[in-house]
Simulated assay, not measured.
Amino acid sequence: MQEIYKVLIVDDDPMVAMINEQYVCKNKQFKVVGSCRNGKDAIEFLEAHPTDLVILDVYMPDMDGLETLKKIREKKISSEVIMVTAANDVATLEDTLHLGVIDFLIKPFAYERFQIALEKFLANRKAFRDSAILNQTSVDNIITNSTKIASKEYPKGIQEKTLLLIRDYFTENISPDGWFSGEAIAEKVGLSSVTIRRYMNFLVGSGEVEESINYETGGRPSVLYKKSL
């Protein structure tokens, strides 16, 4: 069964907080469990409710994001943090990186970039889970994992934005047995069948998607796809 991670959103702007919540909920491995308008309330929430990930704004009243991040570390709260800010000064970036944030997003950021930040969190969790016994290779994999995700290169003809569209299709749609035809995917996401076939070949090759052939169509066999467990 797929693990669901709990997320707290901390931002004094209700509209930004709502958008961030919508972005989080697009990924079915995450669930928003709370929203706070300042750092003080966030610390109280985190002390009372175990939370996996915090989406934390920098500029807030009472206690800003940087001070909140310091408190999270001082109190040894185990939550990971993605920092969100309109600031683009190097000092703020350096301070947050020293305090061990998963990622640093500068407003306004695109949905696709937000999802990459969530993927970094997932990749780190998987790396630690898969490294029951530490050796140099496993340590190197954990330390460099975020960089690999952020700088991921795809084969010619494969674009990150289109991949996200197709991944969203699998998380947002339901079929009785979990299988979808290439034609159904193409129609829903607005791409040609040829394009979908190219992307599905990539996802099958990377292990994200399973492939099967339906010979009971009464005509040309249909290729079916299902998200891997």
Rank of each mutant, 00 (worst) to 15 (best):
Q115S: 14
Y111S: 07
L122C: 11
E74D: 13
S138C: 11
I19D: 03
K75S: 13
A117K: 06
A186L: 03
F109P: 05
E21D: 02
L122V: 07
R113C: 02
G218D: 07
N135M: 12
T137M: 02
D95F: 07
I106W: 03
V139C: 10
I196P: 01
V204W: 05
F109I: 01
D12M: 06
Q136M: 13
D57F: 02
L97E: 09
L69S: 01
S222H: 00
N38C: 10
T147E: 12
I133K: 10
T85E: 04
K70Y: 10
Q115Y: 00
A117R: 03
I43Y: 05
I185R: 02
P14D: 12
S206I: 14
T137F: 07
E3I: 08
Q29L: 09
R197H: 14
Y169K: 05
F121C: 06
V10C: 14
E187H: 08
L229F: 13
K120T: 07
A184M: 10
K75G: 11
L118T: 09
V204F: 01
R167N: 15
Q115F: 01
N20R: 01
R73Q: 12
N38I: 05
G39E: 06
F109T: 07
G178K: 04
E94W: 00
E160D: 10
L8N: 04
N214M: 05
D12Q: 04
V139G: 04
K6M: 06
K71D: 11
M63I: 12
E211A: 10
T162L: 00
N141Y: 10
D103I: 00
N88C: 00
I133P: 04
T51R: 03
N135D: 15
K148T: 08
C36L: 05
N38A: 00
E119K: 10
I158M: 11
I19G: 03
Q136V: 14
S138V: 07
T171S: 07
V194W: 00
T217E: 11
L134T: 12
Q136R: 14
K156Y: 14
E187D: 11
R129P: 08
I77R: 02
K152M: 06
K71F: 08
D41W: 09
G218P: 09
K120S: 01
I196T: 04
C25H: 12
E80I: 00
A132I: 10
V90M: 14
A91R: 00
S151C: 10
E119C: 02
T162D: 11
Y5P: 05
T96C: 15
P50S: 13
Y225K: 10
D64R: 07
D57S: 01
F30C: 08
V223S: 09
E160T: 13
V101C: 04
P155E: 01
P221D: 02
N38V: 11
P61G: 14
P176M: 00
R167C: 13
V32M: 03
F202I: 13
L191K: 04
A110H: 10
K152Q: 08
V81H: 03
V10H: 05
W179R: 11
V10L: 14
L46C: 06
E44P: 13
A17K: 09
F104K: 06
R198I: 06
L66C: 06
F45M: 14
F109H: 08
E44V: 15
